[in-house]
Every structure is written in C-alpha cells, then in structure tokens.
Amino acid sequence: MRKVIVQEFMTVDGFAAGKNDELDFMPASFSTDSENNIENNQLQLIETIDTMILGRATYTMFEAYWPNSDEPIAPGLNALKKYVVSERLEQAPWGNLEPVPIIKKDVVNEIKKLKMQAGKDIIIWGSLSLVQSLLNSDVIDEYQFIICPAVLSNGRKLFTDDSKLLKLHLLETKTFDDGHVLLSYTI
C-alpha cells in the first residue's frame, strides 16, 4: 500500500503560515551553492512519489507558479498525478497539462482508494485546512516538517489548540547548509 506523506514548511515557533496566509518565512529559492540543500532533498523526494493532493488554496498558488516554472523541481512536480480537494471549485486547470481531478466529498475514503492503487507514495504539500481535516483519520502515514530558521509569533499553526495528542516516531533528521532542518516522523 502506498503511503500518504504530509510535508509542511514551518517556523521554529510552529507556524505554517502568517495570519494572512503569508509564507515569507519560506526560502525564496531552494538552490544554494551547496549539495546539501532543500532543492536536492525535494528532487529526491519527487523520485519516491507519483501523486500529489492539494487543498484549494495551495492548488491555486501552485497552479499559478509551477506549470510555467523553470526551476529544476518543476518537471517532476508537473508530471505528478494531481488531485485538488475542494467543494467550491468546478474545474482545476494546470497550465497546458491535463486538468486536475477534484475531490468534492468523502475525502478520507477517496484518499484511501488512492492509497490502494498501485504506484509510488502520495504527497500533500501545504494545504493546512485539508491536513487539519485529516489529522484524526488514519490516512496520513508520515509527516515531514521542514523547520525554517524564522519566528513569526503569530499566524496559522498546523496543530491547533484543540488538536488531539498525536504520538509520532522519528524516522529521520536532516540539517541543510542554509539552516533549515527536516524532521520526518511516522505515526
């Protein structure tokens, strides 16, 4: 069975977005002169996945950027099978590529069906509201937190004050030369 991996960029103080959904704390570019950088990590991750699920807001942000990007990760990201979770969207274009199928209801069961299909792992990038709606389900298998060397002091957290206890088991830690840290956990 395929795994569902959630990857979130977060600040040291646990915020995944600013109070108005700003992402200023994320690196503007992943590329550095070093081999030990986030871009290389993301390129390696893309080799292990073949499906991406996004919430509506993240889909809108990704669709506006990635189909026309010349960043090294863009060809791999654009080649992924994509799904967007939204009750509001009627269509979901992706540049000049195939439109993205929309999951409108029964999200947990639809993701379980995807997990049962043959293929590589499945990634959910960002998509705070979507991930929060899945926290108490059994569809998420792994969390990857990329901790950014920044403090926001307020904004949107992935784990809210009313989140239930989630016991995680460390899989890997990786420190990048630019000060970011990857923490990977399984449930």
Rank of each mutant, 00 (worst) to 15 (best):
E90A: 08
I49T: 09
D50F: 08
E39W: 07
E71I: 13
K104D: 09
T60R: 11
P72L: 03
L43G: 00
D50L: 03
I38S: 00
K104T: 12
E71F: 03
Y59F: 05
T48G: 09
F30R: 06
L43A: 01
N68G: 08
L77P: 01
L89F: 00
I49E: 01
T32K: 09
N109Y: 04
I53L: 03
S34P: 05
S69D: 13
T51I: 13
V84W: 09
E63Q: 05
M52G: 04
Y65T: 13
N20R: 11
V107R: 02
N109Q: 09
D24Q: 13
N41M: 12
A92V: 02
G95R: 07
N109R: 05
W66I: 03
I46M: 04
K112I: 08
I111F: 10
S86P: 05
E47L: 09
T60H: 15
G55T: 07
L43V: 05
A79H: 03
E63L: 04
T60V: 14
L80R: 02
E35P: 06
N36F: 13
E90L: 13
Q44R: 13
P72R: 12
S29F: 09
L80Y: 07
S31A: 13
L45S: 15
D50Q: 08
D24E: 09
L43W: 02
S86L: 09
I49L: 15
L80S: 07
T58S: 06
L97S: 11
T48Y: 09
Y83R: 06
G95C: 11
S34A: 08
I38L: 09
V100A: 00
I73L: 07
I111G: 10
F30P: 10
A64V: 06
E87S: 11
P93G: 01
N40S: 09
G76H: 04
I38Q: 02
N68W: 07
L97I: 06
D33Q: 14
P101Y: 07
A79C: 08
Q91H: 13
E90N: 14
D33L: 15
K81C: 11
F62G: 00
N20A: 10
E87Y: 01
T58G: 12
V85P: 02
E71T: 11
